[in-house]
Structures are given as C-alpha cells and as structure tokens.
Design a protein around this nucleic acid. Structure first.
Lengths: 330, 330
DNA sequence: GTGAAAGCGCTAACAT
DNA sequence: ATGTTAGCGCTTTCAC
C-alpha cells in the first residue's frame, strides 16, 4: 500500500496524497477527507525509508551510553527518550561498554543509520585520553553530551557541577565536626576526576589534611566497597565519615561499617533508588538528571532548528540528606 | 558521497560498487580493491535509507517497555540490545508507561519506522483485558514477548514460570516452619497474576489457610510497602515471613519489620541489585533474564530467517538465598 | 566480471 | 487546488 494506490483509489495525484500526508493547507477539505478516509480504510502506513531518503532524515536521535542496566544511565535514557518522543523523534539506542574501540564502532554504526543527532550519556564519553572520534563525528551531525565535557565545534554539553557537589559534601561533613573523611571512587572519567578534585578542594578549604590512606579507587561494585572498607578498618585506619563517588559504593561502605558496629555518616552520589534501600537510608548527591535531560533535549531541538545555543550549560547539584546523616546528629 | 561518485572515480558502474558493498563474489579482486580503496579515501558511508527503501528493511528491531528506568526492564533492554547488536541489528527503543493508549500509539510508531520485528518486554504487554492491538501488529511483523504471554499467530513468548517461583518460595518458607506468610504485590499484569496464583497454590499445597489479611495489592514503591507493613503490624496482624512480587516491595517490608524490631525472612522478586543493598541482604527469585533474553533474540533471528520455531518457551526460575533467609536459621 | 536500467515510495519544485 | 515530474541512493534483473 503506497501513495500511488491511495491516489488511484481517490482519483487524485500522488502529490495530493503527499500533501494530505504532510498536512499541507493547499488541499480542499473535501479532497482531504476523501484521501484520509481511504488511507484509514486501506490501513495505509507511510514508508519511512522513502520519506527518509527524500528528506535525508528519519527523525531519529542516536543515544550512546556505556550501560543501560546501570540505574543512573537508565534513568537518563528514560528521561531523554520520553522527551524526544514528545518532540516527534525516535530513539536509536546503543550501549557500548567501556572499551574505547567499541565506543568508536557504535558511534559509527549510529552514523550509518543516518540519525539526526547523537546524545552521549555520561562522562565515559569525555575521557581525556581520546575524544577525537567524537569530534570527528561532530563534523557530520550535532552531538550533545549529558554530564560530560568536550569543548569543540558542534558539540554541546549539559552537565552538573560535580566538583562543587563534592566540595559541598565535604563541607557538610566538616560543619558537623567530621574531619577524617574516607573517599572511594571507581573511575577517572571526566566526572570521576571532577569529583576527586572536589573532594580534595574541600579538604583544602577546611584545612583538613589530604591523607592518601583515605581515598582509593576500586571497582564499581558494592562488594568492592565493602571489602575495601572492611580491610581499612581491620588495618587500623580510622575515619569518621565517608563519601563515595557512586551510591553503589556508598552502600558497600555503609554495610561494612554497620557490620563493624560503627555508625558513621555516608554520602553517596547519584541519588539513585539504591540510596533509599539501605537502613539507614543514604544521604546522596542528586546531579539533577531531571533538569539535565530536558535541557539537553531542548538544546538539541533548537540546534536542529538552526538556532544558536550556548555550547555549555552547567547545573547545580543538590544534596539530599537522609537518615544516614541525620540520625547521627539527633 | 554516493555510489555514483565512487563509481565515477573508479571508472566502473554503480552496479559494481553495489556488489562490492554487498560482498558479492562476482567482482574481480582487482576491481574490488580499487573500489574499496576509493571508498576509504572518500570516507564513503552507504545511505541506510536508500538501502532500506530497496530492501524494505533497515535491520532495526523495535523494543517496547513500559519504563527503562525500572531496574528489571533496564537489565532486559541491556541484554537484548547487546545481543541484537552482535547479530547486526539496531535497536529502536520506546517506553510507553502504563497507559493502554500509549502502548498502542508507540507500537504504531515503531511500525511506521518499518522495524523488522518488535520485542515487548514484560508482562505489562500481555494484560488480559486487551492485547488485540498486539495481535493486530503481529499480522505485519513478528512479535516476541519476554516474560509475557499472548497466544496468537506470529507472536512468540519466552517466559519464566513465575507461578512456580512463588510456589517454591512458599515451600521454602514452609519447610523452615513459617506458616503465616505476608504477600505484597503491585500489579495484576499477566506476571502479577501468575505470582499471586503461585502464592495461593503454595498455601493450598501445604494446607496453610488463605488469609485475606495477609495479601495486599499496593503501589510499586518501597514507601508503600513500608507503610502497609507498618500499618499491619500496628493493627495487630502478625506474620512470620513475607514474600513480595518485586524486590522494591521486599525492601520496604524488610525496612518496616526491622524498624519494628522484628527479624523475619523476606523473599523478593527479580533478584535485582536492590536485593543486595539491604542489610541483611534479601533472598530473591531470579527469573533468569540472562537466559530469557538470549533465547528471545535467538528465536527472533530464526524467525527472520524463515525458520520454524516454537511459539512458547518457558524457563525455570531460581531462588537466590541470601542473608535475609539464612541468618534467621543459623 | 561488468554495465544499463528499472524500481523502491516519497517530497517538492514547477506547471496548470 | 491539483497534477507532472525529477530526484533521493541503493539493489537487482537482465544483457553482454
């Protein structure tokens, strides 16, 4: 069933059918109704490929993320997808994992599908070592990075000030009298570096010593965080509070300290559902996906409409205080 | 840059270029090398729309799920996406929410993009009230349902026996001497009904009374589960163990019982990351997404290859016992 | 092994 | 307001 069939059945030309399809005003109501009725009757669906071929767009946006099963990325994908859909775009999703070669390959695959733009989710896509492949892609279509930063023509970034978030976290703890703060993190992506920097700046600001026995890079699992925390406690290293670069890690720290009979405040990151599953519930930094995502989509729509938009937008984080923190101070 | 350009540069016809593109054997090595070199030199990328128009396929699979930010659905999408990609398919993702009208609309949207097939994730897509729209779609392209059941031509289901899972859960508790088992659930989708049925069958099998004060439908949040549990305890309703239709709910039950100073075993469902965030960690039913998803993709590939495959595949669940259960019996 | 040409279903410029 | 026609970039049949 094509516009030719519809046209023939209605005794009109394909141009008229096409006009009806595209809501052109240059069609008489009578004709329009006739065509519309026939389309419905014949259960006609326009061929998106043909349309895409002519317009050089299928109104699809590519989304790249390292792993949708991660709660943070999943939430971002969810928010972005919903928003894009209301704007009439479909979403082509590609999950890359952490290998650079795969990131390159999947970006290329999206490009081959002729998406209108690409949204990169998370700082794994702005590793300092190599984002040349992203810049290369940006020569062809606009790229939006959510929570990552690559300064380049046709690349637009919407991110949360994670450095500030960490500085604020240290501040929060310091003001309550905690001065030996454990910090566990998992990655040194752009965001990971910002967080670590924020932690260190926080220490410096409040004249707390930067003790290398108090910050560690571990793998991104609750188990690793538990193990590291337990190991530290057993080796006699003490701390009065803890911050983690991920809720997942914060959970592990808390589990370990509780098991050791301690009751210390733990601050997580991402304000994910995990933070509300522990007892006591975890205080956590909310990096405002609820704002980042719509902002990114808005920006994208403007870009595609040919408008000029700022290349970088920075959002302030928000610390959500929960039991893990409050209880201690009751 | 099109095959015309490449053809001209190489002094060959577009047919030859096309053959090279498609790996036809009817091209001399010399010509092939020349063309390949030119493609690389010109940084040529085939136009997927034109290709799709001719072949009536862009090698895209539509995935419909109610909500990717749900950990369970996210994991399913993640597994399916990765698997499809290795088979050379791209994934068009649509999240519908729970409204029937939206489910219909988004299914239609995927259809308009001319996907090769559609995978529905989760039992929200096999509600008994209305899956006519799915059957209608199946007239056009094959549909795979992961963890849902619609018995119809061109619809293929891969699911976990959740009824059995619940029966086994009751059994597990009963064998340890627990006979007043609270059951909280959130939805009466196909899966939700199976689980409830399994719970009741379990009770019956072990001659436990089916007490309407012990099973409730609540909304799908940890808070709701906490609140309901607390409310029950306060109103004097007692139970010696609990099962939830979702880890999210199990977490809430456990938080409430711990707060009330109780130590009762709680069994969750989905074996999600949440089950490992609580202290003690939750025993949970694993409904084998790790098996369901690859099975679904395999089946899909076979269907698209014109092979005959069984319409229904059922996988056995697995109960993962953790502290919440073991501790009590130490 | 290679080329010519028809066709895939649509949009849009141009003509009426 | 409606029709004619030329692309869009590829695949594929049929000749050679």
């Amino acid at each position: 069933m094509t516009i030719y069939d519809i046209a023939r059945c209605c005794n009109v030309s394909i141009a008229t059918v096409s006009r009806v399809l595209n809501g052109s005003s240059k069609v008489s109501n009578k004709t329009r109704d006739k065509v519309l009725a026939m389309m419905r009757e014949q259960n006609y669906t326009p061929n998106a490929f043909a349309r895409g071929l002519g317009l050089n767009s299928m109104k699809m946006i590519g989304i790249l993320c390292t792993d949708v099963s991660d709660t943070f990325f999943a939430k971002a994908v969810s928010l972005v997808e919903r928003d894009l859909r209301t704007r009439g775009f479909d979403v082509l999703l590609a999950c890359t994992g952490n290998e650079l070669e795969d990131k390159k390959k999947y970006l290329q695959l999206l490009l081959e599908k002729r998406v209108d733009a690409i949204i990169l989710i998370g700082s794994p896509f702005s590793e300092l070592e190599d984002h040349a492949y992203i810049e290369e892609t940006a020569k062809q279509i606009p790229i939006i990075i959510i929570n990552g930063l690559v300064d380049h023509q046709n690349i637009y970034c919407v991110l949360c000030d994670e450095k500030k978030a960490m500085l604020k976290s240290v501040e929060l703890l310091h003001k309550q009298g905690y001065d030996k703060i454990l910090y566990l993190y998992d990655a040194l992506t752009f965001g990971g570096q910002q967080k670590l920097l924020g932690y260190k700046q926080g220490l410096k600001k409040y004249k707390l010593p930067e003790d290398s026995h108090l910050f560690y890079r571990i793998s991104k699992t609750t188990e690793a965080a538990m193990q590291k925390t337990t190991e530290l406690l057993q080796s006699g290293i003490t701390f009065s509070a803890a911050i983690a670069a991920e809720d997942l890690l914060a959970v592990g720290i808390q589990k370990a300290t509780i098991k050791a009979g301690l009751n210390i405040p733990v601050i997580g990151f991402n304000n994910s559902i995990l933070a509300k599953c522990t007892t006591p519930e975890l205080t956590s930094v909310d990096n405002r996906l609820d704002i980042l995502c719509p902002t990114a989509v808005n920006k994208l729509i403007d870009i595609l409409a040919g408008k000029k938009v700022p290349q970088k937008t920075i959002i302030s984080p928000k610390i959500i205080e929960r039991e893990s923190f409050k209880l201690v101070h009751k």
